[in-house]
Structure formats: structure tokens, C-alpha cells
Design a protein around this nucleic acid. Structure first.
Lengths: 348, 348
DNA sequence: CGCCAATTCCGAAACGTTTGGGATCGCCGC
DNA sequence: GCGGCGATCCCAAACGTTTCGGAATTGGCG
């Protein structure tokens, strides 16, 4: 291993001066700096990350801890998250450690021990839920962290979208088209984002002087098979929905399949909207008719998340740095006014 | 942060002795050790990983570097790998850093720089291909590493299955049933495992005095949609195959769908075998009729891989520690003798 | 009483880096 | 001639741990 000492010997300077030369300090002669840099590249010097960490107290490592699970479905989104996040964090010159706990491991304890053993500058937390203690734990520890999503009940740094608006916007659009029996294939209500979306849907109904039919609300794992079977159930009801809001595009894909299976035409018999996370690994392509709904790309979240976390780490005191990303709405071609729908069927 | 110094002050011993007490050395009084341990837990001491790393030269961190890619398909297996590997490595008390490079980044350079900057004890390499330089690079660096799969052209530590045998076994079984037009939906030939499987298939044909029809060999990304479209193509040939070997169960799923789409019955009109990686996130369930073929669980690979890597790191000189995991074969219920097939169709 | 060995302890150095507080030198202005 | 200043350099301490070599205390034994 090539160290500062090797360089200092080579160029005949003190270790101090070599360190300053490479570190870009001012009190070093331009010619000297040149000489040092040349020697450094010639010898193939790479600063020792560990020694630097010990001295500076920063390791440049951020961690994400996920609870191991024997249930494959619960990992549905994780790949997208892990890959996107890791890429952004790597791009910022930080290291990303992924810690997959044993099933049933105490996640709070893992965070605590990992932080207390030094070596981790900060954490990323995803999918906060009312029950979990991770945010409180890290706040108490004084550890830098950032949350994807948010816990509305306590202040903390986060990057999120307006999930209330997601539910409200899509429900409102369908209500305005005259739909009344609107189903909502929501994500797991154990997480805040799904709770907020449900509230948004409720609010849209309330604004129209209506209320949702609980029989049309489902909380499911957000993958295609689950969406398919939930949609099949809904379409077999005595009084089936005329519209379905899907929590994401994978669920929507299941809805399209279920509709095809049941001989239900979209948008003729059934209007569909979905929230689109802009997944790169499961792209929302091939929907016929083209799917509409709210949209916010997760990739944008990873970029913000990484940059903000880096900033939070740099600032010793945690700023309540949070960010709500833009949401767009496109009505797509998979919805139809329920009045137009009927008149057209009656017509020519 | 609680350090050894804090404990030493608390119990009135030297830092040395505290370190020895906690480290389980012999030259410390049993009563003293007790006192020290109590103080350590009372104060909430956690050894500083960075200081320890600096002194011992080991960080307990292993890394996997994957080339970023804009092509979602190329990441098909990665999730399974990342989650499985990370879980096993975490379970061994090591940290797993996942570095997702920018698309087009120089992967060899990333390995080199990461290793040279200290802080990484070893690497995991997956999917070796004839072109890539990673193994040579790490060997030259003297960095501990282990490969999932192998490069038959150079010695290195690895964990692998006998992919030649995968191809040979399945082809042989179908040939023995009388099949002659056997298609092979292989993985990407850029990787060694697929090359070996192809050689195995070729060998089985040769052993029967036959040779494969190149028109029935496809090299595809190993996911369902690709399998489905490849199978559709094959079934539309003037002289379609009577059997298909799928590189994994996701491809097989595509084959089942394509067969259903084409009105081809399994195993009546088409025999199917597949290699089963025992994926936990995409389990091979719901095949009707039950799918057969060779099988080797990836989860076993992660366990071996992690344990072996840990051992390689502990031993300063890299042992050529390699391991070939067991392969099982089950004929399943998706194959049929081609003679029986015809006689039954002609019969009652 | 003196010697040896076992037991238990500690000082100090080391890992490679960063950085605060000087040191040295030449030069200017008074 | 001298204080001061800017430019350039270096010593030494520090981060928290491990570990080598030795020191102090005790007990046994000749």
C-alpha cells in the first residue's frame, strides 16, 4: 500500500506538506504541489479511506437496513429501490451498504448498533409505517438519516410525493366523469403512503357529497398477480365497479388482464387509472388502451434523497430538510365518461 | 461515543487491559474481566469499527460492483442475487456494499480504486464472461474475491454448479424419450454458464450420434416475456420442436404461456424441461403440468459464497478454494416419450 | 532468604491521515 | 538595524484500537 510517507520520502518533504499539497491547501508552493501530485500518480497513491475516516469522523458510507422476509411479495418494490438508490449514492462518491436482516431481526437494534459502531455516516429509511420505531430511534441517536415517504406524526427529513393528492386527483377525475362505483386497489395500509392515498380518495368523494363503498376498497401487495386476482373478485361482484384506481402500474397490469379474462372492455365497460412510479425495471409499457393517472418518477426521488442525505451528513446538526416532489396527471385513454359510455352503447 | 478510554477511567484500569478483557485474552483476572464487561454494557460501549480496521487492516466489508445499465432486462436476476447475497453476508457479521456504476463506467477501474483505497476486504463477482477482465484484475491486485460461476480459462476461487451437466442431463433425457427436434432456450452466450450448458447439450446429442439443429437454439434474456416470444417463434416454425429445454423457470413460464396461446398441449404435443434456480422471489409454482428438469438452489450458492469469501479474507494468501454445488434432476410431468405420444394419438 | 515462575497488569508504539501551532527564510518599510 | 509580514514548510498530537515487551506482585520451593 502506498502511503503519504512513501510520497514524502520520494519527494523529500514532510508528510504534512504532502497531505496539504494533495488536499489543495494554500500554504504550499505551486511547483511543490506539482511535484507531489506527479509522485502520487506515479506511485499509484490512493488515500486510505479508513485512516481518513478515523481522523475526520466520516466514513462516506450510508446504509439501508431492510428486514429480511420469507415473503417474496413484500420485496416487490425493493429491487427498484435498491438499484436506483445505490446508483445515485455511488454517483455521489459515497458507498452504499445494504444490510438484509435475518427474518424477525430487530431492525431498530440493527440501526443502533451499526451507527454506534461508527463507520456509518447516515441511513436511508424507506416505507415508514405507523408502527415502526426507526425514525424515533435514529432521531434519538442523533444519526443523520432521510426517509423516503414520511411519518406525518413526527418531524424528520424526508423526500416524498403528495400521496393525498394522488388519491384525490384520480378519484376526482373519475367522479367528474360520472363514475360512482369506483374501486381502489390500494397498497398495504400498514404504510403511511397508502393511508394518505386512501384519505385523498375519501376527500374527493366527500367533495362530491358522496362516500366510498368499503366493498370496493382493497389493500394489497402492489404486484401484478395480486392486482389481477383482486380485480377478478371485484368484477364478479353483483354490482361491479365501473372504474378502478390502481395503486401502481403493476396492479394496473393485473387489472387489464382480469378485465380481458372477464370479457370486460377498457374503457367501454371499465375505466382504469393508476399511479405511475416510473419504474425502470418494470416499465409501464404495452398498455392498450394507454393507461393514465398520476405520475411521479421514483428515479427523481433517489436523486433528491441521496443529495439531501449527503447534505444532512455534512451539516452536523440535522436540518429538517424535506422535499415534496412534483406530481403530474395524465388522463390517458383508459377512462371514459359513464354518461358518454351509455349513450354510445345505446346509439348507432 | 463511548471508547475504551471511558471504560478504563470508569473501572480504573489501563486501556490495554480493558481491550484485553473485552477481547477475551488470557492474561486478565476473571473478576476484572467481569467488572470490565459490566462497565462496557452499562456505558453502552461499542468498539469503533474504523479504529479497529485501521489497526487490524480488515474492515469487514465486502463489495459487489455491478455495471449500471439502462436495460432493465439485464438486471433480471440481480435482485435475487443482491438480496440473497446481502442477507448471507450480513448474517456472517460482515457488511455488504453494493456499488452500482454509472452506465458505461469502467468496472475494472472501480474494483481497483475501491480496493486500493483500503476499506474493502474482498469482492464478489457474478456472471463472469469471456470478455471481462475482473478476475484477472483482482488476481493481479492480490485482492480476496470469489466468483459465482467460473472462468474455465484461469484459476480462481469460485462457487458454481456443473452447467455442462445441466445441458447434458436435460438433453439426454429428452433424447432418450425419442425426441429429436429439441429446442434450447439458453441464457446469454456472453456468459460462461450458458456456453457450458450449450456444450452439454451438444455432447448429449453427440452421444446419441446426432447433432443439434441450430435453428432451434436461442440465446435470450432469462425472463418470462423473452421466453414467451422465443417459444412462440419456435412453435410457428414449419417443423416445430417436440421438446423445449428452458434455461430457467421464468423462461419456462413463457413457454407454457406460448404453448397455451398456440393451442399446443404440454406434454401431449410438447415436452418441456427447465433448469430451476430455486428462486425465492420468483418461485416456480403453478406450473400445470408440473415442470421438471435439473435443479440447484441459488440460496445454497450464497451461503457457500459468503462463507468461502470470509475464509479467503481470513487467510492472507488466496487459496484456490472452489466448490461445485449439487445438481438434482427430476423428470417432472411435462415430458412424454415421443413414441407413446404418437401411439396414444392413433389409439382409442 | 533468595530465586523462579505464574499471574496480572501497564506503557508505548503503531495503523495512515488531518491539522493547529509554530518555525524558518527572505524581503519590505521604517 | 529591526520589527513585521507573507510564503513555505514541518513537528507533534490526535482519532480509537491492538499488541509487543516488559513491570509489578505474589506464591512456591530449594
Amino acid at each position: 500500500m502506498v502511503t503519504l510517507k512513501d510520497i514524502s520520502r520520494d519527494v523529500g518533504l514532510s508528510i504534512t506538506q504532502v497531505s496539504r499539497a494533495l488536499g489543495g491547501h494554500t500554504d504550499v508552493n505551486a511547483a511543490t504541489r506539482e511535484r507531489v501530485q506527479l509522485a502520487a500518480t506515479r506511485l499509484g497513491y490512493r488515500p486510505n479511506a479508513i485512516a481518513r475516516s478515523l481522523k475526520t469522523g466520516r466514513s462516506g458510507i450510508v446504509a439501508m437496513i431492510v428486514a429480511g422476509s420469507r415473503d417474496p411479495d413484500s420485496n416487490a418494490h425493493l429491487f427498484e429501490i435498491v438499484m436506483g438508490l445505490s446508483a445515485e449514492i455511488s454517483a455521489l462518491g459515497l458507498q452504499f451498504v445494504l444490510h438484509v436482516g435475518q427474518p424477525g431481526a430487530d431492525v431498530v437494534k440493527l440501526h443502533t448498533e451499526l451507527y454506534r459502531s461508527g463507520g456509518i455516516d447516515g441511513f436511508v429509511i424507506i416505507g415508514p409505517s405507523p408502527a415502526d420505531q426507526r425514525i424515533k430511534c435514529l432521531t434519538d441517536l442523533g444519526a443523520p438519516f432521510i426517509v423516503h415517504g414520511r411519518d406525518p406524526e413526527q418531524p424528520h427529513p424526508f423526500v416524498d410525493i403528495d400521496n393525498f393528492d394522488v388519491g384525490r386527483t384520480m378519484a376526482d377525475h373519475l367522479l367528474s366523469l360520472g363514475h360512482r362505483r369506483i374501486a381502489f386497489l390500494n397498497g398495504p395500509l400498514s404504510e403511511f403512503f397508502a393511508i394518505q392515498r386512501q384519505r385523498g380518495v375519501d376527500a374527493a368523494f366527500a367533495a362530491h357529497g358522496l362516500s366510498v363503498d368499503p366493498a370496493l376498497i382493497r389493500s394489497i401487495t402492489m404486484i401484478e398477480p395480486q392486482g389481477r386476482s383482486a380485480a377478478r373478485d371485484l368484477l364478479q361482484l353483483d354490482n361491479p365497479p365501473t372504474a378502478i384506481i390502481a395503486g401502481n402500474t403493476m396492479i394496473a397490469r393485473g387489472v387489464y388482464h382480469a378485465a380481458a379474462d372477464a370479457g370486460v372492455s377498457i374503457p367501454g365497460d371499465l375505466s382504469v387509472l393508476a399511479h405511475d412510479d416510473g419504474l425502470e425495471l418494470f416499465p409501464a409499457v404495452g398498455f392498450q388502451p394507454p393507461l393514465g393517472g398520476t405520475s411521479a418518477h421514483l428515479s427523481a426521488a433517489w436523486i433528491s434523497l441521496s443529495a439531501d442525505l449527503k447534505q444532512i451528513i455534512a451539516a452536523s446538526k440535522t436540518p429538517m430538510h424535506n422535499r415534496i416532489l412534483d406530481l403530474t396527471f395524465d388522463k390517458g385513454s383508459a377512462t371514459q365518461s359513464i354518461l358518454v359510455d351509455r349513450s354510445m352503447r345505446v346509439g348507432p
